[in-house]
Design a protein around this nucleic acid. Structure first.
Lengths: 339, 339
DNA sequence: CACACTTGCTCAATCGATGAAGCATCAATT
DNA sequence: AATTGATGCTTCATCGATTGAGCAAGTGTG
């Protein structure tokens, strides 16, 4: 970033000079309210042409400083390493731009300290609104933002102090577990409890999914084996080592598993292949989250795909309506059959 | 975004009032150069404490407006739907933050018009530097930025008017093709030409990879079948329909394929499964790009993984050094065996 | 012709942070 | 006692865009 190239940028003052008018006329023309400001169409056209020729671009910092709304909308997101968050981000950008908002996104690597730091940075940049996606401590972020008069919406994980948009985790997990239980029964001719692996035992989604998992067992008349509920975290390494330890402790492994995210599935699959424990018969798997290649891994896998388009529509509905009721909107996910 | 919540934010003037000093003292303390400005440690401490208490956050718009460098660094990226771009973005954020830069990223969906629009938006936000990742028309972006005195670095796809950091596409493709040719020969006992599918025939990467593909064939003494070079675009649907059409035209299908990205592979795999054409024996596949689940698809797949950490280090080396030689740095990718 | 109204623009304050220049105050030096 | 120098602050212009207030000229009305 060398100084020598620092070409002076064209400002409204330069354009005013060239057009022989005032800066305020230029400003009015270029930000579109020249009609309201009673600028003639002729002058408007002249200025617009000049701006084009000179390659003028507004200085947003100056503009935002003066206005009271920045039209910047922020999002924090845990990771970019899976399809779920990838599509959330992409969809977020689309919908924001459709509304003339400028999206800024930051990845916080599931680190609570980084989440707070990122939220602060966004506030410094005067975001009008912040979407906290999968935040470890959403309420903390809401409080920070509230102090600055910035509204927040929780996405993926709910909070208690701002509107939230989440998947119907219970419903999705219930259905997914039912299916895995059923395919196990179909293959082995008898019912048996599944393994639950991945996620954080303390997060809302994991708790709800575990509840669905348990209820599906109850429904089927199968007792849940609590030693098989492994909320070891999302990271592949954690899921892998949870599997390793489980295998060391027991001689008989579960015939089916509920895997709480594709990220955890990565570790589970790695372990399955490396350990050779399921070399004879693959376990029946249910994965809460979708990935196109996971879908190709074989017909022993079912997936629940969270409905990202609907979730983001719900987010922007809340933004557009200005609603502030603190409740969680639950979007039903889609159960996809592999293959 | 309702107006009623628009709490007035704390400014340096408020803090100055509370501390009984001037705004400039507060500014000096809070932006860290109070020593240079000869503010006493005592006052510095007082102001710092007050700022903390009041939950003060700088107004970046005001700060950037005044300074001559914004410390904002922009990146445009085609998609978030694969691991390659995902890790680029994540790594970019990390390295930017390490340097005290504020990263802003925008996804342009491989749309040239959106690329230009996004670049303009970034310029409006006064980025100091822009990384154009996989841009369709990088030179266009460089020109836009140059006019505003903003430097650009091309990533993933090279341009002719700014430094570029790319993978050694030729080398990676050469090695990958060699391996696929070899495994085909191993299985079938004879050499045969591979299929090349995916990518845009006009982009540098695809051309270089096709060159590696051809040279590997030449090396092995296999004639390339030019009707088997299908640069149909990256999208899964395009790869899928290219496969379909190919299968309609010929009775014998290639035994192995070079697939130009995981995105295209998605379409290829879908077609393979749906069409049943390779039901007897799976083709040997080489995929230019890596994905953890692709790696689990079977031992008939080899992947080339682009070295994202090294690529981004190279990008920031260029930024840090302020170098402006317009040359492409080629980073060797890593060949990964599936399984 | 006087008055009001509309049209088409300009002036100047403002947003919040920054930093060059300047002004006291006090200690040290001749 | 007078001068120099360091220390610790304050004052004020500035960055570029926005916008309320205001002014001049033209149009219409009674």
């Amino acid at each position: 970033m060398n100084r020598t190239t620092l070409a002076k940028r064209t400002t409204i003052y330069d354009l005013a000079e060239l057009a022989g008018t005032s800066a305020s006329a230029v400003s009015a023309v270029l930000n579109g309210n020249w009609k309201k400001r009673r600028i003639s169409a002729k002058l408007a056209e002249k200025i617009t042409k000049l701006a084009e020729e000179q390659g003028y671009a507004v200085n947003m910092q100056a503009s935002v400083l003066r206005r009271e709304r920045s039209k910047i909308i922020g999002m924090i997101v845990p990771k970019y390493d899976n399809r779920y968050f990838g599509s959330i981000v992409e969809q977020f950008e689309n919908l924001a731009r459709e509304r003339g908002l400028f999206p800024i996104i930051t990845c916080t690597r599931r680190d609570p300290a980084l989440e707070v730091e990122a939220a602060r940075a966004m506030l410094s940049y005067q975001v009008d609104c912040l979407i906290a996606t999968g935040a470890t401590d959403p309420d903390r972020i809401v409080d920070l933002c509230a102090a600055a008069g910035v509204r927040t919406i929780n996405l993926d994980l709910p909070g208690s102090r701002a509107p939230s948009v989440i998947s119907d985790n219970y419903g999705g997990a219930l259905e997914l577990t039912r299916r895995v239980l059923a395919s196990c029964e179909r293959e082995y001719g008898e019912k048996s409890p599944l393994l639950f692996v991945g996620g954080r035992g303390t997060d809302h989604n994991t708790m709800e999914r575990a509840r669905g998992f348990r209820d599906a067992h109850a429904e089927a008349g199968v007792a849940v084996d609590e030693t098989l509920v492994q909320t070891c975290g999302y990271a592949p390494e954690k899921a892998e080592s949870a599997m390793r330890q489980l295998a060391e402790r027991r001689s008989v492994l579960p015939r089916g598993m509920f895997v709480n995210s594709t990220i955890s599935l990565e570790g589970v699959m790695r372990w399955i292949r490396r350990s050779g424990h399921y070399a004879q018969r693959m376990p029946h798997l249910g994965c809460f989250d979708w990935d196109p290649f996971v879908a190709m891994l074989g017909d022993h896998i079912e997936m629940v795909r969270q409905d990202v388009p609907k979730m983001l529509e719900a987010v922007f509905d809340i933004i557009d309506s200005g609603s502030t009721d603190i409740r969680a909107v639950e979007i039903p996910p889609i159960v996809e059959k592999a293959g």
